[in-house]
């Protein structure tokens, strides 16, 4: 049972930069929570504070109720996997994994048993005598994960662990890491700026911006029901239209859509897959580009004021550059003053 509690944590760097601003989160036992946000949103700083590599300017960090806010990293029950693997190249794989256990003065037989078990767990059985420089990027990342897991930490911290790997390897490893995390049942905090990683791995996603929280929810909820225009624009592909609402109709250039909210400015959010397109001349928009992905197509559409929209279609061959189309959203969200004011489902 390991619960991570982060309460009102703030981090001010010299010069007054506020990297994290009154951040609070509770990660349940065995849960994998992703911190997702653009560069500079404070997610890595927050993770480093949990790992003990940065000291919060204010707030509390606790594991199972024990305050660890001022505890140095070497004393914390956390294990961190770094973006660059951070393996010690002067040691072989076995020594990399055994180093932490030796510092805990475990008997040699126990160290050997634990290292071999964790190497099996990450699929690197028999690799103990290899030099880390002889391993591929994916294997090095697995050794880095094993090095953290072998110490059986209460909390596993992953700092963009797949950022230096190619796309194919990244997809394979994230499935493997998720499997291992669920098998071990370890509470995990995972930093990424890749929305695919967050959506495919996390039990919950924390979308961060400027050191604060924009939304904390399950991946499907964050995708389908973004609470702010920032989340709507950051997760997946989203059409965000700035316009005005008058008499229950949202209007932007030639595009209009019924919207049951009070009159005034609004931002309408429509997923490309929720925007139906029908050929019509002259139509509300013109086709700018057709991209055929094989399984589906993506249309780039221009409104008369050059606003660019995207729409997903099942038969892209029907469309060509310059063709007029009408647009019918099946599901929309609307925002005003950075808050959701309307939502309809398909």
């Amino acid at each position: 049972m390991s619960v991570l509690t982060i309460k009102d944590v703030t981090k001010l760097f010299p010069g007054g930069t506020k990297a994290v601003d009154s951040f609070s989160l509770e990660v349940a036992d065995g849960e994998l929570v992703c911190l997702l946000g653009p560069s500079g949103s404070g997610k890595s700083t927050l993770l480093r504070m949990v790992g003990g590599f940065e000291t919060p300017s204010a707030g509390l960090i606790a594991i199972d109720g024990e305050d660890i806010t001022r505890m140095p990293p070497e004393k914390r029950p956390t294990g961190m996997v770094f973006q660059s693997h951070a393996l010690w190249t002067h040691m072989d794989v076995f020594k990399n994994l055994a180093f932490g256990l030796k510092l805990r003065r475990l008997p040699a037989t126990e160290i050997k048993r634990k290292v071999e078990a964790v190497l099996e767990l990450v699929g690197l059985g028999g690799y103990g005598s290899r030099r880390v420089t002889q391993l591929s990027g994916g294997q090095q990342q697995r050794v880095a994960l094993a090095r953290s897991l072998v110490l059986e930490p209460k909390i596993l911290l992953l700092d963009e662990p797949f950022a230096s790997l190619d796309q194919h390897l990244r997809e394979r490893l994230r499935e493997e890491v998720r499997d291992i995390q669920q098998r071990v049942g370890i509470t995990t905090l995972f930093v990424t700026h890749g929305q695919d990683e967050a959506l495919s791995m996390a039990d919950r996603i924390v979308v961060m911006r400027d050191g604060g929280t924009e939304q904390i929810d399950r991946p499907d909820v964050v995708y389908r029901n973004p609470q702010t225009p920032f989340v709507a624009g950051f997760i997946g592909t989203m059409n965000l239209l700035e316009g005005t609402v008058a008499n229950g109709i949202f209007t932007r250039a030639s595009f209009s859509h019924p919207l049951a909210v009070a009159d005034g400015p609004a931002t309408l959010a429509i997923r490309p897959e929720a925007l139906d397109v029908t050929p019509a001349e002259p139509g509300a928009a013109k086709v700018h580009r057709v991209t055929d992905y094989g399984t589906h197509g993506l249309l780039d559409l221009d409104l008369p004021d050059d606003t660019r929209l995207k729409a997903m279609v099942s038969h892209p061959a029907q469309y060509r550059h310059g063709m007029g189309v009408n647009l019918t959203p099946r599901a929309v969200s609307a925002y005003r003053n950075n808050a959701q004011i309307f939502r309809s489902e398909a």
Binding site: G52, A86, L103, L151
Partner: peptide
């Protein structure tokens, strides 16, 4: 690298262990 140092601290290395096992060999 700073990350190599931090990784050693993360697995429990104090100042002397850091110097002896991580920094001096490198």
């Amino acid at each position: 690298s700073n990350q190599a140092i931090e990784a050693a601290r993360d697995v429990g290395a104090g100042r002397f262990a850091l110097l002896w096992h991580i920094i001096l060999p490198r």
